[in-house]
């Protein structure tokens, strides 16, 4: 499958936007609710273009996020690679899932990525949140339906 000319741009622009959203300042209380925009986009793009975008792509995105947020290099690279791997395994099923199932699945995937980042943070002896670390997974899952509409349209359009 060959990527259309516009798509590379779309991927890059969406990722830049996600990185911007990742560092947007928020009041301290709301920081815990910030969705994992990068993880969402990785799930989205991998599900949409499983033939071209995969674990390597996710790893690069993760590195980008690490550099921008200043976290330990490799934290997000690791967690997003794992997320991409799982979405690659299941992209065919995600496409036929009902919306509720998709939301649940996204919650689990982002939860796994949060778990891995937390594991790395505890390795470098950074303070880790209590169960609140799952809140981003929740908000990300709630954001998924909007992406999903787009995904559905594209899949139907291409077949």
């Amino acid at each position: 499958m060959i990527i259309k000319v516009g798509d590379g741009w779309l991927v890059t622009m969406s990722l830049l936007l996600a990185l911007l959203l990742v560092v947007t300042p928020l009041p301290p209380f709301w920081l815990f609710f910030r969705p994992e925009f990068c993880a969402l986009l990785v799930i989205f793009w991998v599900t949409r273009k499983p033939q071209t975008l995969g674990v390597g792509f996710a790893c690069l995105v993760g590195l980008g996020e690490d550099l921008v947020t200043g976290s330990t290099l490799g934290t997000h690279a690791l967690s997003l690679s794992v997320v991409a791997y799982f979405s690659l395994l299941t992209y065919q099923r995600i496409r036929v899932f009902s919306l509720l199932q998709q939301v649940l699945w996204v919650f689990i995937l982002v939860g796994i990525s949060q778990l891995l980042s937390n594991w790395v943070n505890s390795l470098v002896a950074k303070p880790i949140a209590d169960l609140r670390f799952l809140l981003p997974a929740l908000t990300s899952a709630l954001l998924w339906p909007w992406l999903s509409i787009w995904l559905q349209r594209d899949v139907e359009g291409s077949t």
Binding site: V68, G70, T72, L73, G74, A77, V120, L123
Partner: peptide, 21 residues
Amino acid sequence: ATALILINLYTDWLQPLRERA
């Protein structure tokens, strides 16, 4: 990625890179 994390953790080779970043 794990290797990168470990390098970051136990050495300071990546310091210039982090500053550039």
